[in-house]
């Protein structure tokens, strides 16, 4: 029994230790506390993956803060299906990786990912076009055309005089 509990703890320990999910806000405000550490972050993926050499980048966003995640093995990125954009919420992923305040390879603040997990699927949502907007645009265009007409007529009439 003791052996079992001991083995269990050994298995769980790394999970407990690295289960720390840090908010992007904390990471960006106090990067020195996390420099070189393994941690997990969560965020919505936005845009698309951008390749660099053999690797690729994914940008995630959370509460208005952003982070670039670097993947030396970009195949992992294939797990992501929805990328944030207009009328589209991107997948929310949990990234497990190493954080660098000043990455030697890329010379900027980033996270080198080891693994990711999609914890919330993204989706496309329909646009809501308010009727007021459509009506307002109609009115605006009508007034504009009316004014244009008056102007053109005035110019022609003025010239005849």
């Amino acid at each position: 029994m003791k052996k079992f509990i001991f083995l269990l703890l050994i298995f769980l320990l790394p999970a407990i230790v690295s289960a720390k999910i840090v908010s992007l806000e904390e990471l960006l405000k106090t990067p020195e506390n996390f420099d070189g550490k393994y941690l997990q972050v969560e965020g919505e993926v936005i845009g698309e993956s951008l390749s660099q050499g053999d690797g690729a980048w994914v940008n995630i966003s959370s509460s208005g803060y952003h982070m670039g995640i670097f993947f030396s093995r970009p195949q992992i990125i294939k797990a992501i299906h929805s990328w944030g954009g207009y009328c589209r919420k991107g997948d929310v992923i949990r990234v497990k990786g190493k954080f660098f305040k000043q990455c030697q390879q890329h010379q900027l603040t980033d996270i080198h990912a080891q693994s990711i997990k999609v914890i919330e699927k993204g989706y496309k949502f329909p646009e809501t076009v308010s009727l007021t907007k459509i009506k307002a645009s109609g009115i605006a265009v009508v007034i504009c055309l009316a004014a244009a007409l008056v102007y053109i007529v005035r110019e022609k009439y003025g010239r005849k005089n």
Binding site: K133, I134, A136, A140, V142, C144, A147, R154
Partner: peptide, 27 residues
């Protein structure tokens, strides 16, 4: 082109207002 309906109307409004104001001022 990008089939963004709501923005389309946003700019239609903008276009209308600017056009109307422009002609109005000139008149």
């Amino acid at each position: 082109l990008k089939r963004e309906v709501s923005p389309f109307f946003d700019f239609l409004i903008g276009f209308g207002i600017c056009g109307a104001l422009g002609f109005g001022l000139m008149l």
